[in-house]
């Protein structure tokens, strides 16, 4: 979300934002020129102030509710848990991508169920926001995976050997499953879904290196692309 907010601030586009981080009690984190940011994780429910923000006005509500569960699943090989052997799966939209040898192949329907389970609370939250802002919700998909170049230093920083990097194709496939799940859910909730801007992807479908902030986020340039996409569709 932050990359878009930064881009909006830079472009002097006024906005109000709710972040799921922080204490979550609805307290304003920052209030600046045309900008307000409150912390409210919406559990068990949004505060009255957040509800007023979501229900008031005709403006679209942009949702970046997502998470990193699919990224975590893609890093499982680095987790040293022998009870969870490395896995792979065949993605229906790209069935000929090679499977990694020595992995256990999980049926695609099982992977979908797994992703759905991992994101259950976030999906419920999207439905809640959609019900508060009917017809106005625009849901963004999670950012694309980063290239191995970014992953290696991250793993080293966590004292995890990066001699065998996670299966990059698996990370990409998990992102595609997650994107599809969020898209499907957004449509079910009556929301519009915004896919990743095609120009943000490299030739292999990963986030362009120059748009990466860290292994799970894009930088302000990525935010500019998202903002341009939103403005073009508005």
């Amino acid at each position: 979300m932050n990359c878009l907010l930064e881009a909006a601030i830079e472009a002097r586009v006024p906005f109000s934002a709710i972040t799921l981080k922080g204490a979550g009690e609805g307290a304003p984190l920052w209030t600046g020129e045309g900008v307000s940011l409150v912390s409210d994780h919406g559990f068990p429910d949004f505060t009255d102030e957040s509800k007023a923000l979501l229900t008031g006005g005709p403006e679209p509500v942009l949702s970046f509710i997502g998470g990193t569960k699919h990224v975590q699943l893609g890093l499982l090989r680095q987790m040293d848990d022998p009870s969870e052997p490395p896995f792979d799966f065949v993605l229906p939209e790209a069935p000929r991508l090679p499977l990694e040898s020595g992995t256990e192949v999980i049926p695609f329907d099982g992977v979908r169920q797994l992703i759905r389970r991992e994101f259950k609370r976030r999906l419920r939250l999207i439905a809640k926001v959609a019900s508060l802002a009917p017809g106005r919700l625009i849901q963004f998909g999670p950012p694309p995976p980063v290239s191995d170049r970014w992953l290696e230093p991250f793993l080293l920083k966590q004292n995890v050997s990066a001699t065998a990097l996670p299966n990059r194709l698996l990370r990409w496939k998990l992102w595609r499953v997650t994107m599809a799940l969020f898209q499907e859910h957004a449509v079910e909730c009556g929301a519009r879904f915004v896919d990743c801007p095609p120009e943000a992807l490299d030739a292999d479908g990963f986030m362009r290196d120059d748009l990466v902030r860290n292994v799970t986020h894009g930088n302000v340039e990525f935010g500019r692309l998202l903002l341009a996409q939103v403005q073009a569709q508005s």
Binding site: E6, L37, V71, L75, Q158, N214, V215, H217
Partner: peptide
Amino acid sequence: KKSDRLARALEVLCDEELILLADRLPPQT
């Protein structure tokens, strides 16, 4: 497990994002 540590690290990244955002926000009123 190591998985917990990595999961926490990814969460930490999100928290770090919040901190980075605060740095970029206009002066607090």
